[in-house]
Amino acid sequence: MEFLSYLISGISLGSVYAIIALGYTMVYGIAKMLNFAHGDVIMVGGYISFCAMSYLDLPWPIAVLLAMLVCTVLGVVIEGLAYKPLRQATSLAVLITAIGVSYFLQNAALLIFGATPKVYTPIISGTLKLFGGQLSISYVSLVTIAACIVIMIALTLFTDKTKMGKAMRACSEDKGAAQLMGINVNGTISLTFAIGSALAAVAGVLLCSSYPTLMNTTGSMPGIKAFTAAVFGGIGSIPGAFLGGILLGIIESLAKAYISTQLANSIVFGVLIVILLVRPAGLLGKYVPEKV
């Protein structure tokens, strides 16, 4: 029973990682860049929803929508101002820019909200008791898992069935050929950032609801772990981000419970190293047979 409880909290944590990892992996897939500022968009989503609920007394669904809206705009603006001018630059220049954007967001938040952590009110409180109270699961965990599943299904349908989604896949494979088809590559990249950032806002709300301390660095560790999850699952692959996120969450939760709280992070990153040694493309990383 204890094990089941750890497992569920791992899946819940993993769901947050998966939602963040989707943003990393989609942006990588199309822009071939690691957007290290992605984690900090989560933090912004957390603050926006926090302000909406605590200062403006808005109901949580409105707060979530507001956070998504602000983060979407933020993501598109970051892409347009910081990354778009570097489209022809080396990947190292883009990477350093992304790190710069990350620090910019963290310090801007520090300036606006101060260094004292805010106590985030979870969007849903209470726990579900099962087996005569032996197993208790917080509603936040259930909502998080459900949100992750819904997002996963919606994104899969979007990329497989819709014209925009297919255009996105075409761009991620060959931008030149996509342009020859009439696809606006810059527009598609902006759309990808918009979707990724909206998801980051959702992740921010869910993360802060489970771990209610909100400060300017709240997004960085989950961001790095979600990046790990994306690589673990196979960067560029949407199902890979999902699988990598969930597995990472479970490993972290079980390691904390049965091995050591202090060592949990080391174990998580250790698993990543082992997986990459055995399968360098990640769990679901694509091998494309190419005939010439």
């Binding site: 297919k166 896949r169 075409a170 494979e173 060959d174 030149g176 050929a177 694509k286 494309v288 190419e290 010439v292």
Partner: peptide, 9 residues
């Protein structure tokens, strides 16, 4: 040149 079909589609 090189056809450049979308190989994963």
């Amino acid at each position: 040149e090189g056809r450049r079909v979308f190989l994963q589609m």
